[in-house]
Amino acid sequence: MKRLKRLSVAAVALGTLGPSAVGHAAFSGPSDAKVIFEASGPAGLKIDGRTPDLAVTEDGGNVVITVPLANLSTGIELRDRHMKEKYLEVPKFPSAVLIVARAALKLPPTGRVEGDVQGAVKLHGQSHPVSVHFDATAEGAGVAAHGKFRINMNDFGIVVPSYLGVTVKPDVDVSASFHVAGN
């Protein structure tokens, strides 16, 4: 059975840049990408937003993970519309971007690595540093990675969503997993 492939955005990027197959800035894929944000509201209310869209590139010594937001979905159409139009302003700011210095990424040629790395998230037209916890596993010529970090909507100038008396908390957990095949 095919092994489940996971990587965090940062981890992914990181994993991708490891000394094994990843060292030359060429990535095929990523595949099996899954980006999830988890917001919470009052009294245990949870909201998950998901998108399979993710791209990994290398630019000037940085690994850049770009998540287009157009297909981000919470499972409720009206909520998605509010999220994209009113809060994230997707037409104006179509993507979220995580940038991590390539040099900060350490990944052994084989096995699994787990750690934390500093990066920057660009969202809603604003950039803010984040600490990304990641794990990455070498799989053949590629890497499966998973990573997560937390952002605060206020840091990015996003209006905290509130609808008919239910207000979402500003902290949002973001995680991503994907598989990248190195050249």
């Binding site: 009294a43 245990g44 209310l45 949870k46 909201i47 998950d48 499972g75 409720i76 239910v166």
Partner: peptide, 13 residues
């Protein structure tokens, strides 16, 4: 729809 709890919609928690 992701509503595991009752409180957002019901006054009885």
């Amino acid at each position: 729809h992701g509503y595991t709890g009752c409180t957002p919609c019901h006054t009885d928690p």
